[in-house]
Design a protein around this nucleic acid. Sequence first.
DNA 1: CGCCCACTTGAGGAATGTCAATCTCCGTGG
DNA 2: CCACGGAGATTGACATTCCTCAAGTGGGCG
Lengths: 251, 251
Amino acid sequence: MGKNGNGVRSQENCKTCVLRQFDCFAPFSDAEEQFMLGFKSGELVVEAGSTIVLEGAVSPHLFTVLDGNGIRHKSLEDGRRQVLGFLFPGDFVGLQGAVMNEMQHTVEAVTRMVLCVFQRRDLYSMYVKIPERGFDVTWLAAREEQVLGDHLMTVGRRNADERVAFGLWLLHQRARSVGMASKSRMEMPFTQQDLADALGLSLVHTNKMLRRLKDRGIVEWSSRTLHILDGERLMALAGVDEEVSRQRPLI
Amino acid sequence: MGKNGNGVRSQENCKTCVLRQFDCFAPFSDAEEQFMLGFKSGELVVEAGSTIVLEGAVSPHLFTVLDGNGIRHKSLEDGRRQVLGFLFPGDFVGLQGAVMNEMQHTVEAVTRMVLCVFQRRDLYSMYVKIPERGFDVTWLAAREEQVLGDHLMTVGRRNADERVAFGLWLLHQRARSVGMASKSRMEMPFTQQDLADALGLSLVHTNKMLRRLKDRGIVEWSSRTLHILDGERLMALAGVDEEVSRQRPLI
DNA sequence: CGCCCACTTGAGGAATGTCAATCTCCGTGG
DNA sequence: CCACGGAGATTGACATTCCTCAAGTGGGCG
């Protein structure tokens, strides 16, 4: 796994991609892999805290997260920040910029991240050469819309403890699907501020709700680790059902 | 314009589609029209209050709104409702159901609506035969994601008067783009409850914010009509810039 | 050792929600 | 023609949630 100067690493085989081990991703055909190899233009490694794409900017790149975590967020002039989503391995980044022209949110690395890099200008040819993959991209966009819909519902209509429960459940769920968490334990890369900004709550109030969840024996979050003490009650409070997560495409 | 029994009307020529008159939609090539004629499977007319697609259901159809208004919303068991968006002519409905398998929100007619109907099973063939249109569908999905992101930002981080200003500005903007409003006046098909549910506010508080906006000479909403009294201040309060709305695809 | 960042906790206040009463249309039936 | 009823809008009083401010604590790292 060679690495050159500015963080862009050399290409690798997509079949052996580290993400392929997880059964949450749909398998690849040979024809697909053939195309994807040409589509992939390199790998990018960024340190924690780096901005990957900036709101309002036009980027020539698209990414798939290979490793690490990030967040997508928007900010108002006065600094109020809304986190739109948390990034995990397998997530596709920058589609908005590729089809519209400009990203309407910022993407930032929370830990060190490794990203698979694509050229925006090649995206359309994918629709022509491998329509199935084009369809997959639409699938991902529709999925993102669904997730944002849930998120909006949570922020708009649930109260603070429900929101926090929802946020923690979501993070745990996502981490588990890519092997970053066990059934009851998760290494937490995000801060309480990140969570608060995702849920439309203040940091202080979020902290108090965490305290309450701990007192109730539902979850405990301390020293960068999240413990799920009572998954059933967490899900009940979050207002979610057990997810029968079918496979999703991986670009 | 023949109409048969249960509200499904006969096909028409897409070039003469009522929506083509608006320059917010990108033009059609002949090849595209050829395909779209085959893709279109009919028209559907529904009365105000009807449900078009139901959360959790699998529908064999996709729609483009030809006339009228609707809302997309989700509800919790206890009745709390979140409006995800307002539907205007040109909007594409049911994509989630077509690519995933199940809609995660309900779509409901607020006025009498006319919809152009497509078969879900034909969608994939569009990607194969007219990749450009497949790309357009992705464009629409990405756009929807962007709009939901703005919406989430508003609900999560703006206070009540900003939210109401944002909601009214958005409705006016959308209505204008399809000729349903003048620069300072709009026929309002939605209720204050709809707006409140979109903004994550109670009906009562939304009403009080409307009162305040009226007292400040910014907007006035009475007897189903919205008057924009001071567009500049409305936009400032809503925290938006003048939209340089480029053309968008019409499916 | 000391600083910085994330987290924690309490106190007080502002924003928003809930409840309840009333009003204004507008359509329907007598 | 008028009485009635229902849906949406409006307003005031009061309750609650959540935010802001302020003052910590605790651990990691230079």
